[in-house]
Amino acid sequence: MLISTQYLKFVRYNFCNSNRAFLSKNYSTFNPNIRTPFTVLGIETSCDDTGVAIVNSDRQIISEAIHLQQQLHEPYGGIVPNLAMSSHQQYLPLVIREALDKANMDIAKDIDVIAVTRGPGLPACLGNGLSAGKALAAALCKPLIGVHHMASHALTARLTHPTPNLLPFPFLTLLISGGHTLILVARGVNHYIHLGTTVDDSVGEAYDKIARLLKIPWLKGRGGGPGAALEQFAEKGDSNKFSVPIPMTKDKRRKEAMDLSFSGLKTSVNALITKHNLDIDDENIKRDLASTFQKAAIAHLTDKLELAFKWCKEKAIPLTALVASGGVASNKSIRFSLESLAVEQYNVPLICPPPHLCTDNGVMIAWAGVERFRIGLVDEYTIDHMPKWPISSLGSSTSL
């Protein structure tokens, strides 16, 4: 879809000069057939990483900048919201500047749309990014798009999948991160069917807790942290040395539901250590326990995904792919198991963004802004952050 220069000027005029926000739902009536591509600046501050990127509607990542906070939070064993908020306040202006400098762009002349994470996430952190995005959009008379963080993870595969055309809907989606575990059917940019979620800890939170239990040092750099460190430990461990139960397999009702549960895995690993009086300062034991935990966590994920595939088949939903995204989706062992399930049993490809775009970043927010702007989803400058924002509340989305 091409966006005309006249059309963009029309949008900006209405945003800056009318007494009400411009909220047209049918952009195609303006015959947008001249200008292409249009360019979106995306801002991400939902948790601990400060990310900014510039992406255009031709699926080009023009620039990206990110500030990581791992060294700030590692001494505390997890993310400290007030520290994360202070870091966003300190570094967000510099990260925005860095993204613009890398692109050699003028924000007033070269950026057409501002997109920013609206939720879900940590309240204070979301407020930092959203305030910055709203201020920039209003001051520069540009359309503002508030982005759902998890929807942006799902849509990133449409940006990065190396084919001439966008990955078509519908596709089954597994979103796995430190804060979320969701199984969805993505039917459109603003249309999701919510099949299952965790009833307690997310899978990423479980990885982090087991890493802390086993005293595994955080992995440094982008894509690092406690969960990534545990993955590395698990690679050299023996997953058959010990055994822990796969969650939700004993009760028939829970076994047949598509919701997940990970909190019991930490309890099981802890009980295993106590029962056998295991020395977790022994590197080999530590690796075997990490591998044992990971094997059970992956089995739980694939069990629930198999139920989701079967549900889609029963509903005659013609899936084009299994998309896995979120920080935990960069885990190689998880990817291998998901690919085996998707390709060998259900004849659809597994599509994942590159590992550095699985974790939180500005690229995914900018691209979600592209997708939403194309179909006329623009927000008022008065929108507020939404720390709890069910994806099933988007547009025509639904929940089972």
Rank of each mutant, 00 (worst) to 15 (best):
A115P: 00
V116H: 02
P120I: 03
G121L: 09
P123K: 14
A124G: 14
A124D: 15
A124Y: 03
A124E: 15
C125F: 03
L126V: 11
N128Q: 14
G129A: 09
L130I: 01
G133Y: 05
G133K: 04
K134W: 05
A135F: 12
L136Y: 14
A137V: 09
A138L: 14
A139D: 01
A139C: 13
K142C: 04
K142T: 06
P143F: 09
P143C: 12
L144W: 13
V147F: 00
H149F: 09
A151G: 01
H153R: 02
T156R: 00
R158L: 09
L159I: 07
L159N: 09
P162F: 12
P162W: 09
N165T: 13
L167H: 00
P168F: 07
F169A: 04
P170A: 03
F171V: 02
L172T: 04
T173R: 02
T173I: 02
L174H: 05
L175S: 09
L175G: 07
I176R: 07
G178A: 08
G179A: 13
G179E: 11
L182V: 01
I183Q: 05
L184N: 12
L184T: 07
V185T: 13
V185K: 05
V185W: 07
A186Y: 03
G188P: 08
G188A: 12
V189W: 01
H191V: 02
H191P: 01
I193C: 01
L195E: 06
L195R: 08
D200E: 07
D201M: 08
S202W: 01
G204R: 05
A206Y: 00
A206Q: 03
D208I: 12
D208Y: 07
D208F: 09
I210D: 01
L213W: 12
L214R: 11
L214C: 11
K220R: 15
G221Y: 10
G221L: 12
